[in-house]
Design a protein around this nucleic acid. Structure first.
Length: 278
DNA sequence: AGCCAGGAAGTCC
DNA sequence: GGACTTCATGGC
């Protein structure tokens, strides 16, 4: 167990922010996180966080995962105070950070995300893990849920096997990506060595990856925080509040973090609206 | 029944 | 380069 006081971090906001799909709420402000072949349980009480791992694992894995070297307070203070929508988004979801997730998991997750909704994306990914993911050793801390499947395991999957998981037409993109990694074992490490422009361009060559998914992979899988994914929510935000486009120039180098505040704000507001109207 | 969901590929021009 | 269509699947 390890405890730490951490600022600018809110677990429930991140869990609902659409950047990760496998966080599971065990109880109020307690989440199970499965990543990098590990399982972590985190509890939050205001700014006090209790992690199920020991201190050594916390600093070797999770410190980077939660992006704790980045000063989010400074980022939030840098925004244009006249930008009312962005200000509101930040005061609403200021506990969001960009997680430094596993690249392979991000690639597969956002291949599944296209023209899909978040609850169903989560279901698709969970079925993928149930079917292909590794179980936990019997004597360690147990979860019913499995690890995210490795490239090796997925590259052995038949197309018909993927079809059964109900991923829709996206199973073809997953199959081809797994096959690519079988042919090109260094692909992921090459991507990690690229800058944003190079990585984005390289990702666009792959089947099922367009501009938006490439940006999500850059932002969440490669921590290119200048990437600014524009999905259906961001389009609506820009239409409604940024008639001249979002001022990317003002926030050069980290606009992706602001995108996350905006996305989460719009997402939860539209969710609240649709549930109120039923 | 039709529209939407963290879109992209294919097919026109 | 755009615009338009099609692509599975499920919730509302």
């Amino acid at each position: 167990m390890h405890q730490a006081h951490i600022q600018d971090l809110n677990l429930s906001q991140i869990a609902a922010s659409g950047q990760c799909f496998r966080w599971k709420a065990l109880e109020e402000m307690t989440y199970e996180i499965i990543a990098f072949g590990k399982r972590l349980v985190v509890n939050q009480k205001e700014d006090l966080f209790t992690f199920s791992c020991d201190e050594k694992e916390f600093y070797s894995i999770w410190y980077a995962y939660f992006d704790l070297d980045t000063d989010y307070k400074k980022i939030k203070e840098s925004i244009d105070p006249k930008d009312r929508y962005l200000s509101a988004a930040i005061s609403y979801g200021g506990g969001i950070r960009i997680l430094k997730q596993d690249l392979w998991e991000v690639i597969i997750s956002f291949l599944i995300s296209q023209n899909n909704n978040i609850p169903r994306i989560k279901g698709c990914i969970e079925r993928l893990c149930d079917h292909f993911g590794e179980k936990w050793m019997k004597d360690c801390e147990v979860s019913e849920r499995r690890k995210f499947p490795t490239p090796d395991v997925l590259s052995c999957a038949e197309q018909s096997e993927l079809k059964e998981l109900g991923l829709g037409y996206r199973d073809r993109a997953i199959y081809l990506m797994a096959q690519k990694l079988k042919q090109d074992k260094k692909y992921l490490s090459r991507l990690k060595a690229m800058d944003y422009q190079e990585a984005h361009k390289a990702l666009l060559k792959e089947y099922g990856i367009g501009k938006k998914v490439a940006d999500c992979i850059c932002l969440y899988g490669l921590y290119k925080i200048e990437a600014f994914p524009i999905d259906t929510h961001m389009k609506k935000i820009i239409e409604a509040y940024y008639p001249n486009g979002f001022p990317l120039e003002r926030y050069q180098g980290y606009a992706g973090i602001l995108q996350q505040y905006l996305f989460y704000y719009h997402l939860t507001k539209t969710e609240a609206f649709s549930s109120k109207n039923k």
